[in-house]
Amino acid sequence: MAPVVETINLTKTYNGNTVVDKLNLSVEEGEIFGFLGPNGAGKTTSILMTLGLTEPTEGIARVGGYDATREPLKVKRITGYLPENVGFYGDMTARQNLRYVASLNSIPGNLAEQRVDDALASVGLSQVADQEAGTLSRGMKQRLGIADVLIKDPTLVFLDEPTLGIDPDGANYILDLIVTMARERGISVVISSHFLHQVQRICDRVGIMSKGHLVAQGSIQYLGQEVLSGGQNLLEVQVSEMSDQVLERIKAVEGVNNVQTDGGVIHISSDRDVSEAISRAVFDSGAVPTQLKSQNYTLEELYMRYFREE
């Protein structure tokens, strides 16, 4: 299947300053893609180019098969964009704000009413629908922003810092909304954020940008193996009885490169997934594996690795 978002050598130069340099990004249908990088790395510029809001200096951005530069209206029809610091018309109610967006999308009256009601309900704002948008709290406004992108029934949404400045409870609510959006409606989500643990919680894959370059792209597990463990699979095993025999058996398993003990824990590095063979080896040596888990990588470690090296 063709990816929903595909950029080919996307480049943006402002007055000789290259902000985005040959970006090659792809986002699959229905996935949540985390877009990471320090401030000024070119994330927002990339998003704007993909939406057809900024013209790329070079390269192509395709959304749903449409060229964002040549057919921006078609792209905007299927793409929702929640900008950082989203704003609403303060003197209009939440419902009126959404109605206006529906009318900008030429959604006919009845369908628009239904979509507005649905969107408000799905972000839990039905109660305050007829309150002026200016009176809503920051968290509510952000949720209204999510309702806003749902109005056009998009296949793809870009969320720029959706949880910035929101209390932990509110942030969790928004993250859950995003996951629901992706899993139940099949909407692809690209989310840019600095909250790494949040990204790690909900994202299927991440892309890390640095100074206009995409330095990594893939699932956190994959990137962790590639970057942090030098391509090695790391496994932690605890056994009921530690003995030399156990270690010998484990070392003999095909693919295992290195075995080290640290107290009662055995650290195994291998070049492929060997967990099944390891537990069998432990049984064969007469012991019982009490715990066996593969090394978890945190996005934070990964992220820091990229930016500490510079």
Binding site: L51, L53, L73, K74, K76, R77, T79, G80, Y81, P83, N85, V86, G87, F88, Y89, G90, V101, L104, N105, S106, G145, D148, K152
Partner: peptide, 14 residues
């Protein structure tokens, strides 16, 4: 300044 412009220009209209 109120942040509605970026929302409006991302709608399908010229």
């Amino acid at each position: 300044s109120q942040g509605t412009l970026s929302r409006i220009v991302s709608q399908p209209l010229f």
